[in-house]
Design a protein around this nucleic acid. Structure first.
Lengths: 242, 242
DNA sequence: CGATGTCTTGATCGATATCAACGCTCGTGG
DNA sequence: CCACGAGCGTTGATATCGATCAAGACATCG
């Protein structure tokens, strides 16, 4: 059975960044995808690997992360269903980050040769994939700003805004959203301590920017959260493919 | 007179990431480049622009930066002679960062249509440009780690390592290197304060990791600096084009 | 039912920010 | 040619945000 639902989400993600012709869509679907179930915390890829396959996230959530020489971890991005996980490796041999599942989930893999063959045949596909990868790069730049120039409260608010907007863009229910990340993961994404994340989350709740019930969060007033974060979604490049 | 020297550096930069055929090189040179002198602090591009031209840095240094809603600045990368400055805009309409000259210098511009036409004709060129842009993305990820998980001393050491290695990769003399950046710029690149940058630079000098004479810096022992920074140059992807 | 992971809270510490002031250098205009 | 001012680097004193250390509460799962 072909993993069509998973691939559809991927195509949806690509189309956030540019139109694809029916032939291109068909060609992407026709790639020899292999579906693989993955448990929480398992690694899809490790820093330094030279993968022969690339993968997309079909279900669940994942994180891309790097380690410093003294062992601390920094999460450099979160991935949602439909996102390519390591397509950078089509162009750069060696992975400079690891990909770890944040939750149980499913990925779909293809051999890099198959994708490269498709890129040769349908340059349009290459263009859209490049655009999607560069949109991810724009997110990384925003994360530099986040960790470099915002205080803890702004950082967390900004991360929450990003997660909610991206989730929504990929057709995920966000009115009541179950945050798939532990406070420790949020800490490693924002350059903070789990303890401090806890306190700040609490503070954001206190001022009515979010409300929480376990890991389920609701945003009573988007304006308030956005204002705290200084959030402007343009860095996500959701609407400006050339 | 054609700006061949500047373009050569650009081709050199691209070839860090992949071979180019003689025809492709010729085609890049043949693009209708326009050379423009730029003074220190002038803007090449501003956040939100939708440029009709893209440019490369021919001489001097530049920085890419973003502003937060409350006006603070974060530099998200430094550019060296030969680097493309805003080629992301070939794929993403709207610029999510500004480009400002760090020093006096020269850039070379081309209209985006001309580049796009070349990409259609020589897909090989598109592939190498994409690779170069994704290598920049890898640098952004490393900067997230830098600002998120390293202390001030490691951050500055790491930034200096990166600057020196990249300068060397682009044929710039680095035995005695004149840092083209003020301490304020270093602060905005590392998420620190100018005062603190000053103190840490002083500390690094004290422990013999670097030695300074005005803005000229020398690295007495690369090992020491690299050790402090926990520097591993793999994120620069200087040698692994597919 | 115990073990493990996650969240929570309090007390204290420390790295870096902030505030303030001074000196040097260099370019510019009188 | 000199005087001046702006920009940059430097230094000291103090404040603060977030880290660290420690421990308990709760839920989930084998």
């Amino acid at each position: 059975m072909m993993p069509q639902n998973g691939i559809s989400r991927f195509i949806g993600r690509l189309q956030l960044h540019g139109r694809l012709s029916p032939q291109s869509i068909e060609a992407i679907r026709a790639l020899p995808w292999r579906l693989i179930k993955r448990t929480k915390l398992s690694y899809v890829l490790r820093e330094g690997d030279i993968p022969q396959e690339v993968s997309i996230l079909v279900a669940g959530f994942a994180q891309r992360q790097k380690h410093t020489s003294d062992g601390t971890r920094q999460i450099v991005s979160f991935s949602f269903p439909g996102d390519p996980l390591d397509f950078d490796c089509l162009f750069l041999n060696e992975a400079d980050f690891s990909v770890q599942m944040s939750t149980n989930g499913t990925i779909a893999c293809v051999r890099t040769e198959a994708v490269n063959a498709l890129l040769d045949k349908q340059p349009e596909v290459g263009r859209v994939i490049t655009t999607a990868l560069l949109a991810d790069a724009a997110v990384s730049r925003e994360w530099v700003v986040n960790t470099g120039r915002r205080d803890a409260r702004q950082r967390l608010a900004h991360l929450l805004c990003e997660v909610l907007v991206r989730a929504k863009a990929q057709q995920i229910e966000t009115d009541v959203f179950e945050l798939p990340f532990t406070q420790e993961q949020l800490a490693d994404a924002t350059g903070l301590t789990p303890v401090h994340v806890n306190r700040v989350l609490r503070q954001l709740t206190g001022e009515g920017a979010i409300s929480r019930n376990g890991r389920f969060i609701t945003v009573p007033s988007w304006d308030v959260l956005e204002e705290i974060a200084g959030f402007d979604d343009r860095f996500l490049h959701l609407h400006d493919a050339r």
